[in-house]
Design a protein around this nucleic acid. Structure first.
Length: 369
DNA sequence: GTAGGGTTAG
């Protein structure tokens, strides 16, 4: 029974993909006597999850009779690898092939749209879904719609969608809170967070990241501290290095540099560059040259290729009227930029970024009707 | 036996 055979091969391929063993997945794929769309989609997804969109693309182009699943794997692959322009492009290609998108594809497209921040596209996608026969009440679809509208600057629409939900879950709350956060409405974020708790929804590490960064940006020190404690004590979530970085940022912005520094030193793990970077930003904000120099020195060692650190230190010197030091570090920053530009990885990143910009521009000028 | 929503800097 050849059909049955394909099914078992596919199950094995998917097993390898899910466990991250792409080499074995590929080996099976090459060796199997007969392949179908499912084999291809599994492997495309594997490459996409591993960040290798080039291989995914080759496989996709080679496959005959592409279906919604293979298109979907490509679209979400680009989205998850931060290449929304490519996701959009391939979506448009799919429409030209007269393949109808389903909910999963639209969720991917909305995520791409959020990343692009294009209100034009957001409006088109929103009405496209409304006109379609898709189930708009599905949690995935709604959360994506809320996220897209909030990130593309249509908060009113995001609010309407959110309030129309009969059962809000953790993700839709996070989308909404993040939306308020982006728009500088930290007080609303805190309010929503407590509503969420009142509804009996249990926050996770991401939810705390959202509320903590929001408190930090809005200067809500007391609340931030409270949530940080709540996360550890009431929900038994061990703070990640990123949570610590949020708290360093929160304290630092509020001018409490000493406490911020103490917090870094008290971390149970080695602080990452993000935490030190938050402290350096705070040193700049509070014109603390002594601590700033120390932190900057550490960061120059940890990530010499990051030009931003040189900028921050030279800003600190500028504020202190130490112009000789300023020019010294501006020169160093230039060096760091050149270093970054000369590495192949960054060139690739730059190439992608330029391409994304181009696609975005085209989208803005396109008539979505 | 295949694809899906939320987080992190200055």
């Amino acid at each position: 029974m050849p059909t049955r055979n394909v099914v078992s091969w596919n199950a094995m391929i998917d097993g390898f993909v899910k466990s991250g063993n792409l080499v074995s997945a590929r080996k099976l794929f090459d060796e199997m006597p007969e392949r179908n769309n499912i084999s291809v989609t599994s492997l495309i997804d594997g490459y996409a999850k591993a960040g290798d969109m080039a291989s995914a693309r080759v496989l996709f182009e080679q496959s005959a009779g592409k279906d919604v699943f293979s298109w979907s794997a490509m679209i979400t692959g680009y989205v998850q690898n931060g290449r929304p322009g490519e996701a959009l492009k391939i979506f448009l290609e799919m429409l030209e092939k007269n393949i109808n998108p389903d909910e999963v594809i639209m969720v991917g497209l909305m995520s791409a749209c959020s990343q692009l921040g294009s209100l034009t596209l957001a409006k088109w996608v929103d009405s496209y879904i409304a006109k379609s026969s898709m189930d708009v009440k599905r949690a995935h679809v709604l959360a994506a719609l809320i996220d897209m509208n909030a990130k593309c600057g249509n908060m009113e629409r995001a609010v309407v969608l959110f309030e129309s939900m009969p059962n809000r879950d953790l993700i839709s709350y996070c989308s909404m809170m993040q939306g308020y956060s982006i728009h500088g409405l930290g007080v609303k974020v805190v309010e929503l967070f407590s509503w969420m708790l009142n509804e009996g929804i249990v926050p996770d590490d991401v939810a705390f990241t959202v509320v903590l960064t929001s408190c930090s940006h809005a200067g809500l020190v007391k609340e931030g501290n409270r949530y940080f404690g709540m996360m550890k004590n009431e929900y038994s979530i061990a703070p990640s290095p990123d949570h610590y970085a949020c708290m360093v940022d929160l304290l630092g912005r509020a001018g409490r540099l000493e406490e911020a520094y103490e917090l870094i030193k008290s971390m149970p793990m080695e602080p990452h560059a993000g935490a030190w970077g938050a402290l350096l930003g705070a040193c700049r904000l509070n014109c603390d040259m002594e601590l700033g120099e120390m932190v900057a020195k550490k960061l120059f060692e940890m990530e010499p290729q990051n030009g931003g650190n040189y900028v921050l230190l030279s800003n600190i010197y500028a504020a202190a009227d130490r112009w000789a030091d300023v020019s010294k570090f501006e020169w160093k920053q230039q060096l760091a930029n050149e270093l970054e530009a000369s590495s192949g990885f960054s060139q690739e990143q730059q190439r992608i970024a330029n391409r994304e910009e181009l696609v975005k521009e085209k989208v803005e000028n396109r008539d979505f009707e």
